Simulated assay, not measured.
Amino acid sequence: MDWMQDDGSALGHVALVTGAAQGIGLGIAAWLIAEGWQVVLADIDRARGSIVAKALGESAWFVSMDVADEAQVTTGVAEVLGQFGRLDALVCNAAVADPHNPPLESLSQSRWERTLAVNLTGPMLLAKHCVPYLRAHRGAIVNLTSTRAHQSEADTEAYAASKGGLLALTHSLAISLGPEVRVNAVSPGWIDSRDSQARRDEPLRGDDHAQHPVGRVGKVEDVAAAVAWLLSGSSAFVTGQEIVVDGGFSRKMNYLD
């Protein structure tokens, strides 16, 4: 791809990562910075986002954004272009992250609509406003979906619907935006995205790890590595696809004894 350096690095190129103030989004931002990207961290949490960007160093820059608000998306993308003059990659990670809602009989329309607005409409709005700049550099989009697009627990209707819709949006965008822009999805399973203090205070059980075929619960770095590959020239022949990062959990048959 024409935006990669001769050595395969992304030096000098710009990625916008949403929901990047904590958890998986922060892990993705840190990984991309280590690979040479200039990363714009977008998040609704202005205070935390600013602190995190400062901690990540000169290759990180923060922009405040509610991805469900088109005016904020438009303004935020304009700020990125004003600061850097280009955009090479978009990672749509921002989400209403708690998959559980009240039982269906008690699920409010406002909660349903907010979940879909952030998790599904947000990535559409970001693609809409970023694609002219991504096209200019034959860039890439990665949407963070979920294994819940394929399987569910009880009382997860809003989250599951939003992630299933995002998976469909991914392949639709890949067809609409190709060949200039590639669009793929990463679907995490159980990822322990808590901070180090929380992991120490409440460590996971052995059974939590053992139920995964790889023998452990996932880490944010597992997801970040997949995202980074999809943004790189090494995946130049990959578009419209879903990479499931769940330690094999969704491939395992589960029966009660």
Rank of each mutant, 00 (worst) to 15 (best):
S59R: 01
V245L: 08
A97E: 11
W37D: 00
E113K: 15
L125H: 09
E180R: 12
A236T: 01
V80C: 11
D66P: 00
I243H: 07
V183G: 08
P179G: 01
H137K: 05
L166M: 14
A226I: 05
I191F: 09
V183Q: 09
D208H: 10
S146L: 10
R200K: 15
V238Y: 12
I243A: 02
D195A: 11
G23R: 01
L144K: 08
R111V: 05
N119H: 09
M65T: 06
R111Q: 14
L104I: 15
S193Q: 13
G248P: 05
Q38T: 03
G49S: 08
Y159L: 04
K163Y: 03
Q151N: 10
A95V: 01
T121S: 13
L144C: 07
A60C: 05
T115A: 11
E79P: 05
V217T: 05
W112E: 08
R46W: 03
I191W: 00
T156L: 10
G240S: 11
Q211N: 03
D69F: 09
P188S: 15
S234D: 11
V14T: 03
S250R: 10
A226M: 12
G12P: 10
A71I: 04
G85V: 06
G76V: 13
A236L: 00
V245M: 03
S172M: 14
W229V: 02
L126R: 03
L90T: 02
A97Y: 14
N93R: 08
S9C: 07
G85A: 07
N254S: 14
G122E: 10
P179W: 00
D7V: 08
R194H: 08
D155M: 14
A174Q: 01
S176I: 03
W229K: 02
M124C: 05
A34T: 04
A53M: 03
P103H: 15
S234W: 11
S196W: 11
G57V: 07
S152C: 15
A42V: 02
P103M: 15
W31Q: 15
L32F: 11
K54I: 02
E153T: 12
S187D: 04
H150I: 06
D201M: 08
